[in-house]
Design a protein around this nucleic acid. Structure first.
Lengths: 252, 252
DNA sequence: CAGTGGTCTAGACCACAAA
DNA sequence: TTGTGGTCTAGACCACTGC
């Protein structure tokens, strides 16, 4: 008698599934209000904690957002396209535009909270740049915003050997950005390698990027190399996963 | 008197933060047991629901996993490297190896639950392949495993016009896989474009990939084009975000 | 069998949003 | 002011792990 009544999913999952299919089927769409805690309690005859647990599933999946005092709403996904190879082409920074402007449809990216410092290289940075551990590097940290929405955090590391004391170590790097400055030194980046990981954000990142619960971030680690394959920059970027689509084109 | 005691974070967040820093500082490392519900209740003098809420934060961040009847443990991250351009080079499938073998350090990938069918193309597939809406396509779905761990789901679409009735529409496509078959037809893939998105998995994907809570997935949408820029395959892949690092190399 | 995490109830007080 | 979501307590029963 005892245990043959097994494997029926818990109530809160079934409630979540009902709401999820209502969204997937289009019965509820972007920005629509979904049944709140009180609605679910009445409709399913469950306690408040159970209704909340059902909603928390959907919130952690990133498909709805809760707004205190107002309700729970279907979340939209309207990403920006970040084109790998094209955006780093010489034409862009050769013409006096900073590379990140290639992301933006209308060039309205803004940069924010810039911090420049000379520091000893962390181990993974030293490895990427081919330097000795703790070798001096210039670190540039900044945040990018588009129409007041924070989109990306970025931290660049360049060997202090050639970056210290130049415009690269200034908050404002001048037309074309650091790549143009490198080119003037005869260290123009010619090859790039990007490494992409996914994870959930730390609380600090969630705050800095204004992320909703259930939004993963993309880590993009880029190493820029000269024609002679000397590493000249290591850039560690953290992107709002709900804001970006990455694109890479290549040949067989 | 009333409200000047504001903005202190809720208890459950502070507990979560304590555990998080214990992990970040290295006091707790991969696979270590972290304080469980009962431990936290005693240490912080909170109710069980509060201790659980603190743990649920960390679980949804993907940094710990809960094992029923046992405890809560620090989660490891040991990803596979998936190298974009290199893995699709002609050498690989020209030599009779399927491309996904490039992912695997020792070639021990296995394929699973293969489904082949001829279906009308969904709108986004038709667009990617340059076909009319609802045009007939061959759909190939499969799951990839490495040492019994499911790593990736993939669904390929090829125009039925040249794929139907060939080995491409069979579960076993022969040496070199579908790309070798395409090459024999004079439709060898020469250009690729990959589009990458991140999101939290659906419950079905979480089950199929054996994902822990708090693990995002990577969607990789690849279009393969011939030398003449005719689209011959559209491949929709869903990767376990905790299992992969993607790498792309390109030139300025 | 004792201990763990998983689910669920029935309350409580709070901060915030919208009417 | 009413209703919403956010936090928290104090219980309960269950399924599973590991000794």
């Amino acid at each position: 008698m005892p245990t043959s009544e097994n494997d029926s999913p818990p109530v809160y999952r079934e409630i979540a599934e009902d709401v999820r299919t209502a969204i997937a089927s289009g019965r509820l769409s972007d920005g629509d209000r979904v049944p709140g805690e009180n609605d679910l309690m009445k409709q399913y005859g469950v306690a408040r904690a159970t209704a909340r647990q059902a909603l928390s599933v959907l919130i952690n999946e990133g498909i709805v957002v809760a707004i205190r005092g107002s309700g729970v709403y279907v979340r939209a996904f309207r990403p920006l396209r970040r084109h790998g190879p094209r955006r780093l082409s010489r034409e862009l920074w050769g013409a006096g535009r900073a590379i990140w402007q290639a992301d933006s449809p209308d060039g309205s990216f803004e940069t924010d909270s810039v911090e420049v410092a000379e520091v000893p290289a962390p181990a993974y940075v030293a490895r990427a740049l081919g330097l000795a551990d703790e070798a001096a590097v210039v670190r540039r940290h900044r945040r990018y915003r588009l129409e007041d929405r924070p989109m990306q955090l970025a931290t660049s590391y360049l060997p202090a050997e050639f970056a210290a004391g130049t415009a690269i170590a200034e908050p404002e790097t001048g037309p074309g950005g650091i790549y143009a400055r490198l080119a003037e030194q005869g260290r123009a980046p010619a090859h790039f390698t990007e490494e992409i990981r996914v994870r959930m954000p730390t609380p600090e990142e969630a705050a800095a990027l204004h992320l909703n619960a259930g939004t993963p971030v993309l880590d993009v680690l880029r190493t820029a190399l000269t024609e002679e394959h000397t590493a000249v920059e290591f850039n560690e970027m953290t992107l709002d996963g709900s804001a970006y689509v990455l694109q890479y084109d290549f040949d067989a």
